[in-house]
Design a protein around this nucleic acid. Structure first.
Lengths: 149, 149
DNA sequence: GCAAATTAAATTGTGAGCAATTAAATTTAT
DNA sequence: ATAAATTTAATTGCTCACAATTTAATTTGC
């Protein structure tokens, strides 16, 4: 009865029938697709996400960044310290609420923005998705994002 | 001209218009959705993926696991050593090719399979997606997975 | 048959992610 | 006014994830 190979396969337990695995794998592959582009800016993918937010919104607190990226200070604090050490962002306590730490862009961080403008389009090209496919996928992921967060 | 807030927004550089961010965020949220279920088995999510493959295929080499999960030995070796230490999997050199390490299930690892059968359905419930939505998303992610890998 | 090239794992070093805890500032309830 | 509760970051400890290198086994070309 019990052989060396797997017994009585439960189709629900098979990797290819699940949603979780392609999500996990695609997410990592997309990060890897960014890598050669981000390498030129010497940024990691989560560092790039932080800068995207700062370019868009200006100064943000650690809490604000965390709410938008769904990351906590345990992840953000060391990441932001690395960006600060490289002179890309500034960190200062909010005078109106000393608990908050406000993250701003230093000139070198502003300059990087120009180098980054071509990144989204370059990525789109790698995906090889039609605009309709792209929008459909984006919509479904955002729907699931709302479902889960 | 240059104000404290961000200047001349480039819509392509905005987080909400990109595919990458919801992918990254949903992937992490899905892993987190697994966590309370996997906690009962004392497994992390990537450890669970490894066991799914072993339950399905029986013995697999590190290379075989890596090909299916898109992970390399730098990630798998320490993970597999932890599973071995807990008595869930076995590791032995392939006699026919001493470069390969074959990963098999120990009895305790086989037993875990029964406890895991309910996990996929429990997850599906958390997603709150209709079967059609589920299949559409799975299809698009698998399409992108093929595009990128 | 043997040197060169290739392959498979392991190792090293860095940077996320995240749970849990700690410390300090602020808010609230009385 | 002040004690208790809450909020915000930082810290600690653990596990991925992955690039780059190393070591050993196998395959290939000659």
């Amino acid at each position: 009865m019990s052989q060396s190979a797997a017994s009585a396969p439960n189709p629900l337990l098979q990797l290819e029938n699940q949603l979780c695995f392609p999500l996990y794998a695609v997410s990592r592959l997309v990060t890897k697709a960014y890598q050669p582009l981000l390498e030129e800016l010497e940024l990691t993918y989560p560092q790039y996400l932080v800068l995207l937010l700062l370019w868009e919104h200006g100064e943000l607190s650690v809490k604000g960044l965390g709410e938008k990226l769904l990351l906590d200070s345990g992840t953000l604090t060391p990441l932001l310290k690395r960006l600060e050490q490289r002179g890309l962002v500034s960190r200062r306590r909010d005078a109106r609420d000393e608990r908050s730490v406000l993250i701003g862009l230093q000139p070198a961080g502003e300059v990087l923005r120009h180098k980054a403008t071509c990144i989204p389009e370059a990525l789109m090209a790698k995906f090889q998705l039609s605009p309709a496919e792209f929008e459909a996928l984006r919509g479904q992921l955002n729907h699931l994002l709302n479902q889960l967060s």
